[in-house]
């Protein structure tokens, strides 16, 4: 009874490593260099990304879980980790052919890929690019 008044979220963290280059082909080289600095270096560079996702839903009485972790891990691995890990985001992820893979845009793309998870509601995606920078998107 009392617990109907509570909102519970499940949080899970995953990791992948990928390279990217921040470059907008609509801008000239000088502007790209001015805006993106080192991140515009032509051959790209990489990060160890951490993806934190939070999901809400009813706790299943039989399992004690909002979502079975095996189902969740499989979904996230298929949708995000496999296609991104040890890849060039610019070259190998179709959505970044025409978008600059800043971690803001990456965060939104990961949210888009995971929001169809069938067993719980995706509340937010947080991407940690380095220990100093992180970005969070909640779908709005």
């Amino acid at each position: 009874m009392k617990n109907e008044t509570l909102h519970i979220e499940l949080g899970r963290r995953y990791r992948f490593s990928a390279s990217h280059r921040l470059h907008n082909s609509k801008l000239n080289d000088e502007e790209n260099s001015r805006i993106y600095g080192k991140c515009n270096n032509p051959f790209g560079h990489g990060h160890n990304y951490t993806v934190e996702i939070r999901l809400s839903g009813k706790i299943n009485r039989d399992t004690g879980m909002i979502s079975n972790l095996a189902d969740l891990d499989k979904f996230v691995n298929e949708k995000v980790i496999e296609p991104f890990d040890h890849r060039s985001l610019n070259e190998e992820v179709p959505e970044f052919r025409n978008a600059v893979p800043t971690t803001e845009i990456l965060c939104i793309e990961i949210f888009r890929r995971l929001k169809t998870f069938p067993h719980a509601k995706l509340e937010a995606v947080r991407v940690v690019e380095t220990s100093n920078n992180s970005f969070e998107y909640a779908g709005n």
Binding site: L6, H7, R12, E123
Partner: peptide
């Protein structure tokens, strides 16, 4: 209330209607 079982798995508990933001 945020409870981590390990660094990659946690649960958050809020009063309903008072979410993360």
């Amino acid at each position: 209330v945020r409870l981590y079982e390990n660094s990659d798995l946690f649960a958050d508990c809020y009063r309903n209607g008072a979410g993360a933001r």
